[in-house]
Nucleic acid binder design. Structure first.
Lengths: 156, 156
DNA sequence: CTCTGTGCAAACACTTTGCAGCTAA
DNA sequence: TTAGCTGCAAAGTGTTTGCACAGAG
């Protein structure tokens, strides 16, 4: 699993914010939760539960895949993680950190991250904002990636 | 499955466009494909394969769920349908018609459609447009819906 | 006539659940 | 101490695949 260049302090900040969030929600702070969250934000891609599991195992050698699944789901519910859009199987997660957007190829399912400044601060429609608590705003594109377009042209 | 107020001619146009698309991609025009596509665009929500199946059965009483699944997948590949973002199980599909956006509750998974003019014509970043064929642009929000916020407050 | 699409059934992959022991607070 | 968490194993659920027949082009 590729890793990000997080500096130490940034990581610490995120972790303590996470612990506070857990406490707020009445969740206990367990080594497993810390490890899963840590692995998630350390990953630069959008790992599956399995991938997070493999990573976390390095520290907690006897954590179970179920716990990773359950924890990921929990993180998702408290807004500490998100399921990547347009997902097929297996589900892919995102630490929800820096602003970036996704492009997904409808043919091969590949997800390409990109960052486009103007999308960083989209305004939430008033109506929506009044009614719901918006935790995450994403712009999401779908279409054919370069590889699949190439393939297409060869076939047709 | 709730239905849209499509007028006849609009439906016809969509269907013939669909047939042309199929031909372009070298796909045969079968009653099953027509029926699935028809059911999909007639639905105002984001039906699951199962829901489409139930609908289609009214006309093609012995179509199989597998065919519906397979067809939905095919439509997805040719850009005639899309999988709704942030999907868990079961997958939900969208005919990709009118511009609208989605809000998804991270707690209960409910998907709320909304329409906000300014989001209708988002510009695709040049870099992306050069490299990929963007077929669909979506703004997608996640957070807590009114119901789940209410619940939350009662619990904590 | 040919080759793709369909229906059926079995196989899969991932996710969820139940329970007993464990652990953070 | 005690609610909540974890690990294990088993059960689900939705999706995919292989094959033979049927039907579109």
């Amino acid at each position: 699993m590729p890793e990000k260049n997080h500096n130490e302090s940034e990581l610490e900040v995120k972790l303590s914010e996470f612990e506070i969030l857990c406490k707020t929600k009445g969740l206990k702070i367990t080594p497993q939760r810390i490890a899963v969250y840590r692995a998630l934000i350390a990953s630069s891609c959008h790992p599956t539960a399995e991938e997070v599991y493999q990573q976390v195992r390095r520290d907690l050698s006897n954590i179970s895949l179920d716990t990773v699944n359950r924890t990921l789901h929990t993180l998702t519910e408290i807004g500490a993680a998100f399921v990547v859009e347009g997902t097929g199987q297996p589900r892919r997660y995102d630490g929800g950190g820096e602003g970036h957007q996704h492009f997904r190829c409808i043919k091969c399912g590949r997800i390409v991250d990109f960052h486009y400044e103007p999308f960083d601060n989209i305004t939430v429609p008033e109506l929506l904002d009044r009614q719901f608590a918006v935790l995450r705003k994403t712009v999401y594109f779908e279409g054919l990636c370069d590889v699949c377009m190439g393939t297409k042209q060869l076939i047709n």
